[in-house]
Design a binder for these strands. Structure first.
Lengths: 125, 125, 125, 125
DNA sequence: GTGGTCTAGACCACC
DNA sequence: GTGGTCTAGACCACG
């Protein structure tokens, strides 16, 4: 398993691990039923504390991506793409609502927001 | 003073009151030096416990929007617009970053997001 | 805040803390908007590690009972009793479904299950 | 061999296969010494990847239900009924404990729970 | 002061 | 071996 962690990022390490694994599941690099590395082996591998890996796995389990079983390991669950996209759209709507509330409150123009959007969109992979 | 409170919202009532007052200050409906209603009269008015109003006013004071003076009442302070807008822009950037992350992960197009944005922007006051 | 923790219980400490706080919210000992003890002060108070308190608070936040705000503290949210009962009934149905699946698989009689139920129900407070 | 797989279930497919085979063993539809279908023929039959069937068989072997012998196939082992029932009873107790905890917290009566139980029990096969 | 994150160990239960 | 929990510190960002 290839996970690259940046210690300087403002994104918490457990979030980086989560995102990495979600992306691997979504791109089919990790497939349904597959066993993830054990929390201890992954911790050793990428030189991160066990508790941090555990937190990443815990959240992935809550969000329905994986399932940890005591004594056995941690498996990738079936991905329910439709439901995941549905949820993502709802999340995006919530973020946009909050942006609009702030924009109205502080009189930030629609164009300003679209500029920020374009800037950040371009800088991403 | 018009404040509409939703009991079903996941946002705590005192937060709703805070947001409402901040919005009124920022839109100049409440102006610098203006007296806010007393805690007790507002509590009676919108049928909310005195303690809840107190908490909202306390936090607004901590955050520098208003100032309570014993025996005189609570009045609106000078807006620190620059700092507030600075913070709002940072918050907007964070929201947009999360939107972009979701969009990339679930292959939601930029146009789809702009459509949602236009739709929500139009429906707002 | 009174929380009594048993170190000998098979119930994890963070679960005991969670249950205790939920019960206090449900019985109105903790009221909407109220500030919970800080994770550090509670940790010191009941001689438990900060991380354990944090885990309890985190799960309470996920389940919608409280809200932690950086730099400010942790507040009790409005409780939505109807929704909570609705959710509890669904959870109970899921547990019962699993019990029935096991009972059928291993040919455990309905009466046996009712006996276990009566036994455990009686032993509880 | 009749196995019905649901693609929409949150239960991983290999788990569904496992549960199905365990149920057939416990109900004597599959008897001690009987040969299971080969991994490849079953995979073809229910249109599931060979790897998924392999994982189900692997786990069933680890858990002591079946035994694969190279060149001969996979056959059903003697049931360890006592141990399995023991475990099932423990699982049922855990489920009932959680039900009682929810019932007390949300003031759901014993009769309500027994009604749900009767309803679900009746509707099952 | 507050919460948010992280470490480098430890012991337990399950397999 | 595996995951589940817990400790007793630490440093950071926010207020």
């Amino acid at each position: 398993m290839n996970i690259i962690i940046s210690n300087n990022s403002s994104v918490p390490i457990y979030e980086q691990i989560k995102n990495n694994i979600i992306n691997q599941i979504m791109s089919n690099e990790l497939q349904e039923g597959e066993l993830l590395p054990s929390i201890r082996s992954l911790a050793k591998d990428i030189r991160i504390s066990v508790m941090t890996i555990k937190k990443a796995y815990d959240e992935l389990e809550i969000e329905g991506y994986i399932k940890s079983v005591q004594g056995k390991g941690t498996y990738v669950l079936e991905k329910n793409l439709e439901q995941a996209i549905e949820q993502a759209r709802k999340d995006i709507e919530i973020h946009i609502s909050k942006i609009i509330e702030l924009a109205i409150r502080y009189d930030i123009s629609k164009n300003d927001i679209l500029d920020i959007f374009d800037y950040l969109y371009g800088s991403d992979e």
